[in-house]
């Protein structure tokens, strides 16, 4: 059990390079009552804009560093960022004082219609300019660097000119943003497009990696063979653990999140998954920097 704090005293914001779990609504009471021994939590910003949920996150924040992970900013939307949504996020950031803030390489809105999914971007110079502009604007509004997560995608576009890892690297260079390396998303996308997952890792700028995500996914039989679907409703798969170990050797330890959003299991199961990540961080995370210097 985590040490209870003095009333009105908030723990520090910094997210440590250890295992964390996603905070989910069904577990709020358990967090308040039991104070589980987890180093940090990540919350989906858009689920904490409503009154009661926000009040609960505020209370939980006293005892845990919080990372805010957004799904609704639509950084890739050609029409621009939703001002009201950015303002609401800014207020959430001000009240919560997150140790990390993140979003996705994706788009979700067009003609002021929000389509409630992380939709695929054609990776072109035009997209890069648009996403970079929005990342800069978001960082400016929110007052800190944000991390951009590599997406799970199900299709690629013929008119794309920039491969995804190079696109992310260019984004880092233009904006000073960081990256969330979602290991599960690499496995999903690599499976769906025939990529080499390890090679993908090798083309990312090491210093920009600020966080790892680990999650479960499903495979679905289609007329074109197996598609991997990023469902976040399973334990982390064996090939994801394996790629995570490669990433740890290459990049060193980083805050590592267990992301389980659907068919949410008990808190104990989530904590057990986090413990698996923590063991690998402890074993393999050391020496990442040394390998770099060699």
């Amino acid at each position: 059990m985590a040490t209870p704090r003095a009333a009105g005293c908030r723990c520090e914001a910094t997210i440590p390079a250890s295992a964390g779990i996603g905070l989910r609504l069904p577990h709020h009471q358990a967090f308040r009552d039991q104070r589980p021994a987890i180093a940090w939590i990540e919350a989906h910003s858009e689920n904490y804009l409503s009154g009661p949920a926000f009040a609960e996150l505020l209370a939980i924040r006293n005892d845990y560093p919080v990372s805010l992970h957004s799904v609704g900013l639509s950084l890739g939307a050609a029409e621009g960022l939703d001002r009201r949504h950015l303002a609401r996020l800014k207020e959430l950031v001000r009240r919560i004082e997150p140790g990390l803030i993140s979003e996705h390489l994706a788009w979700g809105a067009v003609d002021h219609a929000f389509l409630a999914d992380l939709l695929p971007l054609p990776l072109t110079e035009e997209s890069l300019a648009i996403v970079a502009r929005h990342v800069l604007r978001a960082q400016d509004a929110l007052g800190q660097r944000i991390l951009i997560e590599n997406p799970a995608t199900y299709l690629q576009f013929r008119h794309s000119t920039i491969p995804e890892p190079e696109f992310l690297a260019a984004l880092v260079e233009r904006t000073g943003c960081g990256l969330i390396l979602d290991i599960n998303n690499i496995i999903v996308s690599a499976g769906n497009h025939g990529w080499d997952a390890e090679a993908y890792l090798g083309r990312l700028p090491r210093a920009a990696i600020g966080e790892f995500h680990l999650a479960g996914h499903r495979q679905r039989e289609t007329e074109i063979g197996m598609l991997r679907i990023d469902t976040h409703d399973q334990p982390v798969a064996a090939d994801v653990w394996a790629l995570f170990e490669v990433a740890l050797r290459r990049f060193g330890p980083r805050p590592t999140l267990i992301e389980w959003d659907q068919a949410i299991p008990s808190l104990d199961i989530l904590l057990a998954e986090a413990a698996r990540a923590a063991r690998r961080l402890a074993l393999l995370g050391l020496g990442g920097e040394n390998a770099d210097a060699a």
């Binding site: 609504l25 989906h44 858009e46 689920n47 799904v71 999650a215 679907i229 469902t231």
Partner: peptide, 17 residues
């Protein structure tokens, strides 16, 4: 859905299966 459902999530739901 006050305590039970996160309606804004980044996962592709089971309905996609």
């Amino acid at each position: 859905g006050i305590n039970a459902a996160g309606r804004n999530d980044c996962a592709v739901g089971a309905h996609s299966c």
